[in-house]
Design a protein around this nucleic acid. Sequence first.
DNA 1: ACCGGGATGTTCT
DNA 2: GAACATCCCGGTG
Length: 215
Amino acid sequence: MRVVGRDFYRRDPRAVAPELLNKLLVRRGIGDADGPDAGDRVGRIVEVEAYCGGIDPGSHAFRGMTARNRTMFGPPGGLYVYFTYGMHWCANAVCGEEGEGVAVLLRALAPVAGLDAMRAVRPRARRDRDLCSGPAKLCQALGLGHAFDGADLVTGDRAVVVCDDGTPPPADPAQTTRIGLTNGTEHPWRWYVRGDPNVSTGGGRETLPPPPPPT
DNA sequence: ACCGGGATGTTCT
DNA sequence: GAACATCCCGGTG
């Protein structure tokens, strides 16, 4: 199982996003710790969205760099973690070249390892499919918060990496419009693994594009 | 299963 | 002062 290299991210996020499907997001634990940090927490990436900087009105980077989004403009392979709705953290893999401000939002994981630790930090999740089935849920499950903004997914400087265990991306992923936005809803820049129960819109149903606006 | 509303506070206008 | 790349709960069918 190898860590994904930096050149993987150094491309258009719309190319990176579908290839991130079926890769593993790994939060390394502390071997001799107790509680949630006792071991690795691992999830298979099953849902992603691309955010395309200056050309994308839905992107945090659309209006240029700010104190909040500066990680997005950093080197590819960085982890951009932002706070939203007054209580939630969400995580992106920075893509493209440094200075572009493009990234892929990690929207859902299928839990693979460290399920007990995930359950411990998400006591309200009734079923395992509720542990990581949303961008803020997966951050909570893996313990990703402000301290992880700017982490390097390639060097693993803060114990978070993306790995490839040999499972290829799906040959025919579902591609839909993005979720939860008010701007940029027309772009079909969301991808997910068909049929996976951990996809964030309930049981993995396809989301059809919105009807064309009235003329 | 589907829908509506409240929580909660940072960020940007 | 509004918006926000969300989640959870409690209603109804």
